[in-house]
């Protein structure tokens, strides 16, 4: 199957059905292994003690919140430039999942911050920029539900997504550009990770597991969105058919014209 064939929604759904069991198994496997390592293998941090274990869900959730918006931005280009039929399906399906992982990132960060920083929240650059990302996800969800026509909604959402992408490098480099309470990058940095391998490996395994989970949920949500659009088309077809049937009856049988008009008036 060529990549271009996936533009066909029916073939895409068939592919989802095939890869779904593998993705579910990989998600469960990696997350189970990651949780085992996080609680039974990784040591306590010498300063933070056991609270470092919150990192194994906080950091993957944070990565996914950025990854999801970046993926939506590529989809937005697909919608605006190439008009790929699955682009806005992918973008729309990703919004609630991205919002959920950003919410997890914010709340687990808060639960980690209270015992370590002594406060649930600080208006510092990293925390505030992630909160802005969460609000942007909610804004996109509102936009999708406001415009009924999915093609028009897709274009508006694509523009908003691309404008919002400016926040992604701000989040990533906020800890370098400003003096913040949040720790600087310790995994993806020029000089290599600064975390000891006994903590780094469980973190990477959890991150891979979360990424498989995200992919699984996203493909399932895309499948739902394709079915929703198919349903919408069929309902419009049904409405058009009943309209043409009323018009035909009116034309073909003048004696029933009054009845047709009465039906139309009743529908209004």
């Amino acid at each position: 199957m060529a990549l271009i064939d996936l533009a066909n929604p029916t073939r895409f759904i068939a592919l989802v059905e095939r890869v779904l069991p593998v993705l579910v198994a990989l998600s469960i496997g990696f997350i189970a292994l990651g949780l085992y390592q996080a609680f039974f293998v990784a040591p306590e941090d010498y300063q933070q003690g056991d609270t470092v274990r919150i990192m194994f869900i906080h950091v993957p959730a944070a990565w996914l919140s950025l990854f999801c918006w970046s993926m939506m931005s590529v989809s937005a280009l697909g919608t605006l430039v190439w008009r790929h039929p699955l682009s806005d399906v992918a973008a729309k399906a990703a919004v609630p999942i991205g919002a959920a992982f950003t919410f997890v990132c914010l709340v687990t960060g808060s639960l980690w911050g209270k015992p370590m920083w002594g406060t649930w929240w600080m208006w510092d650059a990293r925390l505030t920029s992630v909160l802005v990302l969460f609000i942007m996800y909610l804004g996109l969800a509102a936009l999708w539900s406001t415009i009924e026509d999915p093609i028009r909604a897709g274009k508006a959402a694509a523009i908003l997504t691309l404008v919002g992408f400016v926040n992604i490098p701000i989040i990533k480099f906020s800890v370098d550009w400003w003096n913040t309470l949040h720790q600087p990058a310790s995994v993806f940095r020029a000089g290599g990770p600064t975390i000891h391998s006994s903590i780094l490996w469980p973190l990477l395994i959890m991150a891979i597991g979360f990424t498989f989970l995200f992919t699984t949920l996203h493909l399932l949500a895309m499948r739902n969105e394709i079915l929703r659009r198919r349903l919408r088309t069929l309902r419009m077809m049904e409405a058009a058919r009943s309209d043409s049937s009323v018009a035909t009856t009116t034309t073909a049988a003048p004696s029933t014209a009054k009845l047709g008009a009465a039906i139309e008036a009743g529908a209004e």
Partner: peptide
Amino acid sequence: LGNHGGFILAAY
């Protein structure tokens, strides 16, 4: 889970 077990369990 130490003195902050509640925070850890709440997060998970």
